[in-house]
Simulated scan of single mutants.
Amino acid sequence: MRVCVVGDELVAGLGDARGLGWVGRVMARTTTENPVLVAPLAVPGESTSALSARWESETQRRFGAHSDNRLVIGLGSQDILDGVSVARSRLNLANVLDVAAASRISCFVVGPPPRPDVDDDAVAALSQAFSDVCRRRHVPYVETHEPLRTHEQWHADVAAGDGVHPGQAGYGLLAWLVLHNGWHAWLGLPEST
């Protein structure tokens, strides 16, 4: 199995002193019989437009012709900062998911968490739009915004760092949400304890 993880700096774990981010923490809790190649392909400050333009060429270099190829999409709030409309954001994600489906690449999407420098209602609306795109395509979607919107530990962890990105505790919360919202089922594995 080969899993490519595309997205912004949250995919790379920016701000995590341990360097694991949510991706590393999720993989540390994922036990498989056969080895899994995980390729985090993060671009800081990436919008869905940029992600849509690059994901295919970057993942093709890592996917194998005879492998079980999987794509994890970690979405952030850059579209809001760049003034990308919700309709365009939806279309960008839909295009990625549709091209992946045509290539028989199974997808898993992680939505944008809250950010103190981005309007909270705008992030909620963007997350709902992403969720709807995934629901219509039967793609697992992890809602991170709503559970973390008023989570004291999340906000304290972000405030203790650069004021935008989480630290170890915040990435632990993101990993917990991924692990408890369809991750193992998507990989065809029994739930972790």
Rank of each mutant, 00 (worst) to 15 (best):
W186M: 04
L20A: 11
S47H: 05
R2A: 11
E46C: 11
T48A: 10
R2H: 13
H184F: 11
N95P: 00
A129Y: 13
S106Y: 00
G21S: 00
H184W: 12
L71R: 03
Y171V: 09
S77T: 13
V36E: 00
D121R: 15
V86W: 02
Q78K: 14
L51G: 14
V36S: 03
R25S: 07
P166V: 10
G24D: 05
S85G: 12
A87P: 04
I73W: 06
P35V: 09
D79C: 10
P113R: 04
R88P: 03
S77E: 08
R62V: 13
C4K: 09
P190G: 12
H66T: 06
T144I: 08
W154D: 00
R88E: 02
A28V: 11
F108K: 06
M1Q: 05
L41R: 00
R115W: 02
D68I: 00
P166K: 13
D119G: 15
A100Y: 05
D79G: 07
Q78C: 04
V3M: 12
L187Y: 02
V139W: 01
W154R: 01
Y171R: 11
H151Y: 04
P112M: 13
P166C: 08
G163L: 13
V158S: 02
V96E: 06
D132R: 15
S192M: 14
S77G: 14
W22N: 00
D79F: 05
V96R: 08
A42Y: 01
A169G: 04
L41N: 06
V110I: 15
T193D: 14
H155Y: 09
P112R: 06
A175Y: 00
Q78S: 12
Q60P: 02
S192L: 15
V118A: 08
A50W: 07
G7H: 09
I73V: 15
L20F: 04
L174Q: 05
D68W: 00
G161T: 05
R104P: 05
P40Q: 07
S131H: 15
Q60N: 11
A87I: 06
T193I: 08
L148P: 04
R70Q: 05
D162K: 09
T32E: 01
M27Y: 13
D132G: 07
T32S: 12
M1I: 10
D121I: 14
G172H: 04
G167T: 14
M1V: 12
V38I: 03
A156Q: 14
R29Q: 15
S127P: 11
H66L: 04
R115E: 03
W55H: 07
R135M: 05
T150Q: 13
S77V: 10
S127N: 15
G24Y: 07
L14E: 01
A156I: 00
L126Q: 15
G13L: 03
R29S: 14
V133S: 07
Y141F: 09
L179K: 08
L148I: 01
A175I: 00
T193C: 09
M1L: 15
R29I: 01
H145D: 06
